[in-house]
Design a protein around this nucleic acid. Structure first.
Lengths: 210, 210
DNA sequence: GTCCTAAGTTATACTTAGTACATATTAATA
DNA sequence: TATTAATATGTACTAAGTATAACTTAGGAC
């Protein structure tokens, strides 16, 4: 928490914009809310909105940097006895166990997912974030093993892992949407991560990543 | 080839726009060419451009539907003795053997890749196409085995396969950019497809997809 | 060949995201 | 209190994409 007034005010402004925007997006759909409306709802000038959020999508995906930070941290500070691939497998279980918002299945998350699904712009940003994560996982894994950041094995492993998690999340949300059963959704998520991880191991066995 | 004049004229107009656009995009970068300039270069009205290409990106990615068609065909008309995963592995070798434009490594392809890499909009469209392909592969594979199109195993397999091909293409283009050696790039592409396919097999062994 | 209609082209007018730049406001500090 | 640097905001702009209507012309009916 920053101590000086200026930073606190700036953060409050940012949060106000983010809250107003998220509320409007969830209520009416991303593409049917204009930046002018958001500015009015947050009681700030239009330029202030773009000052805090370069693109409209950034107001919706406000947690993505924290997610990347978490991944970097987990991979960098991992137990050296546990391989990168195994570290990420365990992370999946840990996130489920601690009810992390990244793998939560609830009415709220359902709303977020539906809002994304209804907007090409939001889907595009989600895909971009996915690619950025794949890139960062590849580089972090390569660093783990002391290989160059463009090591093909690292990129293959990261690509397969991110694909696995993506499919697992999508399928788990589908399960929740069908059944409303959060436990079943979590089980589906973990089962697919396990299954995909088996594939990753087979693909890059003997490279130090597994 | 359509026989009637109207269709031929329409196709010619479309091709003229596509050609003018592609030339301009490659020369100056996607984001530094306006639709007005394209219309002027193709000697048509601005609205005609949007009539043929709903979005600006569609002028650049003019072959994507043909690529999806190829995939659908290959999976639907496959030898029943050969599994879907194996069919796609063989397709990779076949595309390389017949010098398909989808896996060509040359100065031209280098220009295309560089133009995409320089534009967020083009990268976003490339990612969207990738997702559409993953979806279609999943559905085609499920159909091959007589399972519902939302079968989780099919989606996992398709996700892993598309991730594999993506990494393989990116790495192969990187090899070509470094060395200018098209043969080396093709070898890297095929090696990574093989390696990824090993992973896919391990992930969905015993499901009928492998 | 003439007329009709439907496809295709194009102009006008509009909405909205995003950028450039200038100005105003206000917290921190000398 | 005066200065300055960060933050907020107004004005003016660019460019993609949409809606709508009008215009042009190929193809078919007679």
């Amino acid at each position: 928490m920053p101590t000086d007034l200026r930073s606190r005010k700036r953060l409050a402004t940012r949060q106000g914009i983010s809250n107003a925007a998220t509320r409007l997006f969830l209520a009416r759909g991303f593409d049917h809310v204009t930046v002018d409306e958001i500015a009015a709802a947050a009681d700030v000038g239009r330029m202030t909105v773009f000052n805090h959020f370069p693109r409209k999508e950034d107001m919706f995906f406000d947690r993505d940097e924290a997610g990347r930070e978490l991944l970097r941290e987990v991979l960098q500070q991992r137990d050296p006895a546990i391989s990168p691939v195994e570290t990420l497998r365990l992370l999946a279980h840990q996130l489920i166990a601690e009810q992390s918002p990244y793998v939560r299945f609830s009415a709220d998350s359902q709303g977020f997912i539906a809002t994304i699904a209804a907007s090409e712009t939001l889907k595009a940003r989600a895909r971009a974030i996915r690619d950025e994560i794949a890139q960062l996982v590849a580089e972090a894994m390569a660093e783990c093993v002391g290989k160059p950041t463009d090591d093909p094995d690292a990129h293959l492993a990261a690509g397969l892992l991110v694909a696995t998690w993506t499919v697992a999340l999508v399928q788990a949300h589908a399960v929740f949407k069908e059944s409303g059963d959060a436990k079943a959704a979590e089980a589906r998520f973990l089962a697919l991560v396990e299954q995909g991880t088996v594939g990753v191991r087979a693909a890059v066995v003997g490279t130090g990543y597994v």
